[in-house]
Write a protein that binds this DNA or RNA. Structure first.
Lengths: 203, 203
DNA sequence: CGCATAGTTGACTACGCTCAACCCTGGTGG
DNA sequence: CCACCAGGGTTGAGCGTAGTCAACTATGCG
């Protein structure tokens, strides 16, 4: 989550960290690539997708500034998913072997890492749970509520609507349509890229 | 995954491990319960479900003999999901604080635990990916292939069909129907509780 | 100014869900 | 030993809704 990992890092590891810049759409790693590093987003936004069958895929994670990706592959040989930039981005590279060594030597670091893994897994669960909601209407409301800043009733969408649609497993059309319907029914109010949930929807 | 955790355990922790027996349907922990332990299935089978909204839920994990559950909550205060037995089961209880202490002291143990977490996360991803397949037919085929023992073309279903349907996110009826259709089309052959994939479906 | 891509809306279709009836099995009790 | 019952499994009919295809508008960028 936080860039904590970096700050609490032993000196010798910190010096091994490289960076890489990516253009929108550029791929950081793809399925089958050998795992050489774990990544932290320094700026921008990456998405990790998992492919299945031959023509289906799911968004497994969206990593924003300060968040990490690829840690799941730390103990694997190759990646099983694909990561690409949604916007111009810069990532930090934590070399796999050095990181593993550091995890053995520094219990605090290891504990942070385990926390990180747990958080990631919880996010996966939330994603999975969201998909369990069949109705587009309910799923969108649940998504909006989940993304509400604490104490606020307004969520700001900083991504393309079609990317969000993809993210929550709806076709873009269904997403647009249902947003429009929610607006018309007075459940939400849209001003530009921010959406306000009316009190009728209070969780 | 494996009971590895137990065997490689320091003596003082091993002596703290209790067991608990559960009847089918009996709940091991539910949403909101304080986390006191992490569990390993010694015999039987448990399911972990995550609730969302007020009337939807997903199966997040099915833990069989030797597999663990609840590790994700090791660094949390309360459980965010619910675990119950599908069949008569016995679980081992690893006390939370003792386990965390042990993880700090034994790098090998910590590494095993991180591997375990990674494996769990990958399973979650696979679940998520499965849900991304909209067609019942394809989803079932994918599920069957994923559960094929290596080198074999036959998968044996040791659970109730309706539980499996629930697991993969289909209504029982849709599941039965589609199995029947696959049978009729010659894509699978059923003898009792085992299903053979015909060569036509070779991945 | 023009092109590419996002966003929006309409019409139609397909497929999974729901409800309902029914069979079949195993277990229990009289 | 049979009657009954409960729950899983199976099939049918009909409906609702999300996906698809398509047309069109809006927006940003060269």
């Amino acid at each position: 989550m936080s860039i904590l990992l970096l700050e609490s890092l032993p000196e010798n590891l910190r010096s091994l960290i490289l960076t890489r810049d990516l253009q929108p759409g550029e791929v950081l790693f793809r399925h089958g690539d050998p795992v050489e590093a774990v990544y932290v987003v320094q700026s921008g936004r990456l998405r990790v997708v998992h492919h299945i069958g031959s023509d289906h895929s799911v968004v497994v994670l969206v990593a924003r500034t300060g968040e990490s990706l690829g840690e799941l592959a730390l103990f694997a040989e190759t990646f099983t998913c694909e990561a690409s930039a949604e916007v111009p981005s810069r990532v930090l590279l934590y070399p796999k072997h050095a990181l593993r060594e550091a995890l053995r030597l520094h219990p605090d670091l290891a504990e942070d890492f385990m926390r990180l893994q747990a958080r990631q897994a919880m996010q996966l669960r939330s994603r999975l749970a969201l998909r369990a909601i069949p109705s587009a209407r309910e799923r969108i409301l649940e998504f909006l509520q989940a993304n509400l800043p604490p104490g606020s009733r307004t969520v700001t969408l900083d991504r393309l609507l079609k990317d969000i649609a993809d993210d929550i497993g709806l076709s873009p059309e269904a997403f647009y349509r249902t947003l429009a319907a929610l607006q018309k029914q007075g459940d939400i109010v849209r001003h530009g890229r921010s959406i306000e949930l009316t009190n009728r929807i209070a969780s």
